[in-house]
Design a protein around this nucleic acid. Sequence first.
DNA 1: TATTTTCCCATGATATCCCATGATTTCCCG
DNA 2: CGGGAAATCATGGGATATCATGGGAAAATA
Lengths: 162, 162
Amino acid sequence: MDRFVSQFTNRLDAKGRVSIPASFRAVLARDGFEGLFVHPSLDAPAVECGGNALLREIDQLLALHAPYSEERSSFSMALFGASEILKIDSDGRVVLSESIKEFAGITSEVSFVGQGEKFQIWEPGRFHAHFEEARNRVRDLRKQLNSLYAGPGGPRSQGARE
Amino acid sequence: MDRFVSQFTNRLDAKGRVSIPASFRAVLARDGFEGLFVHPSLDAPAVECGGNALLREIDQLLALHAPYSEERSSFSMALFGASEILKIDSDGRVVLSESIKEFAGITSEVSFVGQGEKFQIWEPGRFHAHFEEARNRVRDLRKQLNSLYAGPGGPRSQGARE
DNA sequence: TATTTTCCCATGATATCCCATGATTTCCCG
DNA sequence: CGGGAAATCATGGGATATCATGGGAAAATA
């Protein structure tokens, strides 16, 4: 498999180390990146993690803006300046920096959440809250979709709209 | 890794020396440039630092303007004229010149900020302010981008509604 | 000669390496 | 199908290496 899927929660040890889930390590190994590339999420108290695939994503985001433009340097500052490359030790563990832990509110446990090309790390409590919220949102969106859809015969005239 | 990433703050010692973060030194070593090429930023109270990769970037910027044009010589003057090559001692430290320290407002501590191809040095207080601003800006820009995107079918006309 | 610059070594704190352990899980062979 | 051996995995801890920083002395500069 070459995607990050599922979620795991591991403990931080006394030295601040935490094991990356084995299945995630397998994806990283295939990706070929040395270490773990991480940066704080722009829209949640979580940290985005990955390898070359994530780096490519950032490059694409940067490429949207002209070189030397103010937007470009803002992105560069906010993304590269806030990123880190964590070393993965021989047992598959990383040490989370203080700034990462503070940003995500992590103290003793870490949740790893697969996101396909990348994964996120969360403080477990915050993650569960966020997860429930996402679930509810999806439910609502599906309801809206269903009410728009009217089957193979094409949209029905009447109740199709809100 | 061959990019400057993350941020570090180190102290100037009594002799005006400051350690370049080890991970940045590793990138510089790979780049192959002897010493550290620096020049004041064109739009912030910061100093741009790097090696051959940074020089290449400057060449590209100059190439945007016609040879012997006034703009070109202005850029060339502003960039190369104000640039320096700092020596890196055997412990990975540099001595910042007076003009650099004055330009950036540096007194006792220096923040090193990764920007991919290059890195910047800042007075820590100024940097934090600038960083927060960049982050907010990026958040706003991203919101604008997201509202333009409407899925594989292309942008929806108008009433896409919340 | 006086002052600054460069080289080299010392040190404490932190990060990294390497091995151990117990709990599952997977595998294999009867 | 079933049960025991082997492999995998998260976690823990001691030993070692790396890093930022400080300072002395040689070398260069004025």
